[in-house]
């Protein structure tokens, strides 16, 4: 990964960041395999140049934007965010990226646009998880946000981490980061962004609607059928097997002050 410069931002946690080693070798990116070390092992030959993102749907100025243009035109900031996986582990990651709202401003969403849909690249010849007998999900991986969530200043499109461009296994060259939602909402290697009127489909919600909702806000009070969400294990906290006590999971992953108002009046146990 090449060095990537970014200006500091006000969104910097004081918690100690996860090591780059852990954050780049322990990943969920099922296009490259379902094991945690599969993405780093299988993404070496994934090509991220040339790369362009098609931004369209209910917008005044649909366009196909090249990744180099994105890196040049948008001001990159460093954002140190908590990352909480739905599997009840977490990291602290210094992302580099820019607010998604800046990209949305550029394409000028129409008044009828209520949601933003995202789509990951499909490239079975380079992504072993997209071919073969046991494919964990239907491809392409898709996910979405409500427009106000997408416009929230915390929501970024990331192009790097730890001062460098995104490694392939972390979703190069462009991925979504929504720090108050479970990690699977952070769709990777994005090729299409579409403004829509209806709630867009989400891959995990399609695969198991009772387990993964559209919103997927980090919520210690709403358990996943497979995992209690009340606590989490911070990756790298333990040197080996011992000393990694579970820590309490915070509502909206600790970003409640910034984002809870987005959900005023909603029953978050139903809209999980």
């Amino acid at each position: 990964a090449a060095a990537l410069s970014a200006s500091p931002s006000r969104y910097v946690l004081t918690e100690k960041p996860t090591t780059k080693e852990d954050a780049t070798t322990y990943n969920n990116f099922y296009e490259f395999g379902t094991g945690k070390s599969d993405p780093v092992a299988n993404s070496g030959s994934f090509t991220t140049r040339p790369w362009s993102v098609e931004v369209g749907g209910l917008v005044a100025k649909p366009q196909i934007i090249d990744i180099e243009t994105i890196l040049k035109d948008f001001a990159m900031e460093e954002r140190v965010y908590r990352m909480r996986c739905v599997e009840a582990w977490s990291m602290v990651i210094p992302w580099i990226g820019f607010p998604l709202s800046a990209l949305l401003d550029r394409v000028e969403p129409l008044g009828s646009a209520k949601y933003v849909a995202f789509e990951t690249v499909v490239r079975p010849e380079e992504m072993p998880g997209q071919s073969g007998l046991f494919q964990p999900l239907p491809w392409p991986y898709v996910d979405g946000l409500r427009l106000d969530e997408a416009r929230h200043p915390l929501t970024i499109l990331a192009t790097g981490l730890y001062g460098e461009t995104l490694p392939n296994q972390n979703g190069a060259p462009l991925r979504l980061v929504v720090p108050w939602k479970y990690g699977f909402k952070g769709i990777k290697s994005i090729v299409r962004i579409t403004l829509t009127e209806k709630e867009p489909p989400c891959s995990w919600n399609i695969a198991a609607p009772s387990e993964y909702g559209f919103y997927a806000n980090v919520n210690p009070a709403v358990d996943h059928p497979r995992w209690s969400q009340a606590s989490e294990r911070r990756i790298g906290e333990a040197e080996g097997l011992f000393g990694g006590a579970r820590i309490a999971t915070l509502p909206f992953n600790g970003y409640a002050d910034e984002v809870a108002s987005l959900y005023a009046g909603m029953d978050l146990a139903k809209s999980f």
Partner: peptide, 13 residues
């Protein structure tokens, strides 16, 4: 391996 950090980022799991 677990004691000496050889089980990856989440050794307990």
């Amino acid at each position: 391996l677990g004691i000496f950090g050889g089980l990856g980022a989440d050794p307990v799991r």
